[in-house]
């Protein structure tokens, strides 16, 4: 069942430009240069109930603006939105009870109190019946193993612990849709993995529809089957994630460190990122990685080697420069 639907959704902002210096400031008192910035441009989106969708794109692509329009935080400049049959910007309480938003850089927990105190307030705000509240809280406490720090002042929690509490706070009222804006930002690898496991479970067990933005490729790859790529406010890809990465994540990042100063030179087709006598970092085509690693390991005394996925920004950039819009037609 289709629960999120947008048609030609557009959001424009007006910015003012001012010349530098005092003269420019005085001039701007009387005359300002207006610049219209289109944050989201003619965006069409359909999401079915229970889907876990990744929204990716470089900074300023329009991901967060799109999410803010879907949650009613900001109004669209034109186009239509329907979420669960509601127009988000009408800010109806009946709609607000059916979704939650978690923003990695904004907290809804009272920092000076325990998370349990905030949960009690949310119980009142969402009008959660006592039985349901107790049942949900127990479910999340067990799932996340947070019993030990439920009653601890929030400001003393680590970032990972706090994010778990944020997610519990967002899910206590059983929302049908969960909007996640960079939920793993700044977290270490262990905490990121825990959060991912938790989200997977919630999506599977409770059937919660989740729309996730993240700069961490691992988040998107391990959670979402469907991915939407946004750049300059436009949707440039909407479809299967694996197909996208097979086609556009063409490189891997290899970093080799040496025990001794080494001036390793080989005629590989790679892009050097960093080079010094003890370290070599480069981007190589995925198909060449095995051959390159073999050569390096045969020819040098290496201390350590790491192979990482290419940065998500590069992939998006490549899709965009390859006129990824054409790909949408191709896949569907």
């Amino acid at each position: 069942m289709n629960i999120i639907h947008t048609k030609n959704l557009t959001k424009t902002y007006i910015r003012f430009e001012k010349e530098e210096g005092l003269r420019g400031s005085i001039k701007s008192l009387f005359k300002r240069e207006k610049i219209v910035k289109t944050a989201v441009n003619n965006f069409n989106l359909e999401i079915n109930e229970g889907e876990f969708v990744g929204l990716i794109g470089p900074n300023g692509a329009g991901k967060t603006t799109l999410m803010k329009m879907l949650t009613g935080i900001i109004s669209p400049s034109s186009g239509t939105i329907s979420v669960l049959g509601y127009v988000p910007n009408e800010l109806k309480n009946a709609y607000k009870k059916q979704f939650s938003i978690v923003m990695g850089q904004k907290s809804q927990l009272f920092q000076d109190l325990s998370a349990a105190d905030t949960f009690l307030l949310l119980k009142e705000i969402y009008d959660i019946p006592e039985d349901e509240y107790r049942k949900n809280l127990k479910y999340f406490i067990d799932l996340f193993s947070i019993a030990d720090y439920l009653n601890v002042q929030v400001r003393t929690l680590s970032l990972g612990e706090r994010m778990k509490m944020e997610l519990v706070a967002a899910l206590l009222h059983n929302p049908r849709i969960l909007f996640l804006d960079e939920p793993t930002i700044g977290l270490d690898a262990v905490a990121q993995k825990q959060i991912r496991g938790f989200l997977k479970e919630v999506n599977r067990e409770k059937g919660t529809t989740i729309l996730l933005t993240s700069h961490y490729m691992d988040d998107i790859k391990s959670l979402c089957k469907r991915c939407i790529v946004v750049n300059n406010g436009c949707k440039i890809y909407d479809g299967n994630l694996e197909m996208l990465f097979d086609r556009y994540q063409t490189h891997k990042m290899i970093t080799v460190t040496f025990d001794e100063a080494t001036s390793y030179i080989h005629d590989f087709n790679v892009q050097i990122i960093e080079r010094n006598p003890f370290k070599l970092s480069f981007m190589a085509y995925r198909k060449d990685v095995r051959h390159i690693i073999n050569c390096i390991m045969t020819e040098c005394e290496i201390k350590d080697i790491s192979i990482e996925e290419e940065d998500i920004g590069n992939v998006v950039e490549r899709i965009y420069s390859d006129k990824g819009g054409a790909l949408i037609e191709e896949i569907f």
Binding site: A94, K96, F99, S100, Y126, D127
Partner: peptide, 17 residues
Amino acid sequence: SGELDLYITKPVNSLFH
């Protein structure tokens, strides 16, 4: 600061909250 975001999305009158 944009902190208002979280108030707007709660099912209570944001001004009263």
